[in-house]
Amino acid sequence: MTMLENKGPAAIPSPREITTEPRFSDKLFRAIVTTGGLSSLVILGLIAVFLGYQGFEILAKEGISFITTSEWTVEVDSFGTITNTTFGLAAMLVGTILCAFIAVLIAVPVSVAAAIFLSFYAPASLKRVLVSIIDLMAAFPSILFGFWGLFVLMPSAEYWAKLINRYLGFIPIFEVDPPIFTRSPFIAGVVLAIMIIPIVTSISREVFSQTPLDRIQAAYALGATRWNVIRTVALPYARGGIVGGSMLGLGRAMGETVAVYTVLNIVYQINWQVLFGAGGNVASLILLKFGEAQPYEIKALMAAGLVLFLLTLFVNFIADQIVAKSGSKGR
């Protein structure tokens, strides 16, 4: 004790700076993965700059009416000189959101059910076959989905649309006036749903397969039925992943071009009536117009691309927020 008293209060040192010198191999590896990690950012940035540069003239001229009006006309005189132009994307933006939303609404329940079946019910042999079929479906060219949607799905979907209209027609979005039921956002949405089911299914299956075994066993040991184990343990755990997968699907549905172009009747008029045969989306507009566009209209299409790009970015940002909020709770 006396010795301690003689020393007096010990001086508190300031914290040391702790550093490490990584080896060359570590630095090299770090450089390689950093390049990979930043490449997506660089590519995305370059695309945005390109679209912005090309579309700036149109955006400056049209201003806010570019996204609030629905007319898209290019008037030329007999010499082929442009005399007047109006570019408005509103109908296409509404169509983009509407079709994508319908697609997600249909695809997510189907995909989650499929993922639950594959993870918890399917016998191993069937599971292997189904998983490879679903992966194949994800790689299927979208034009074929479009053709199939147009020629095979349309007649049935038209019938469903009429049924929905008959019994739920009092809800404004299910009104159809005049009675044109083909080539509607609903049918485009169904085709898009089929296209995004593989991606949502495989992501959901992946998160279901990571459900901690000890929690599943704990639930079974408490006398739970399989359905109750899924409901109480697997679904809360997988919720964040399912939301994330759905948002990837939503992104794909918003950007889908050819299938929508094939199925949908593209009309420059805002249409909220999902069963009515009129609509469009930004990507299919670009495809429709690109072939015959003159340099000036191409600029307008670039501007449309930029708007779609920003819309997708915004939706993904919202999705990330949702995942961040709901992801941790069940884990």
Partner: peptide, 20 residues
């Protein structure tokens, strides 16, 4: 292995919920 998405109280009663 408590259920992390449930509170302490819910964990105790989780068997009732699971077995309905």
């Amino acid at each position: 292995n408590p259920f992390p998405s449930m509170t302490i109280g819910e964990n105790v009663l989780s068997g009732l919920k699971l077995a309905q």
